[in-house]
Amino acid sequence: MQVELNGRPVETAAQTLAALVAEQGFDATVVATALDGVFVPRGDRVATPIAAGARVEVLSPMQGG
């Protein structure tokens, strides 16, 4: 199925947010996630299913301010 990951279309076989994070090569301990505009805490990713068309944001610390 296809989801939108950080604004880009991505094909994935992942069924949960945790699986998507791992599949796409993110360091799960560093990033924060949101699904369809709602924050998903790290501990909830395993139990958070994703569906086709889901909008997923994966953010990490960066220079700024």
Binding site: N6, G7, F26, V31, A32, E57, V58, L59, S60, P61, M62, Q63, G64, G65
Partner: peptide, 9 residues
């Protein structure tokens, strides 16, 4: 120090 969050790099 001020910092940001960005799409993964």
């Amino acid at each position: 120090i001020t910092v940001s969050l960005r799409r993964e790099g």
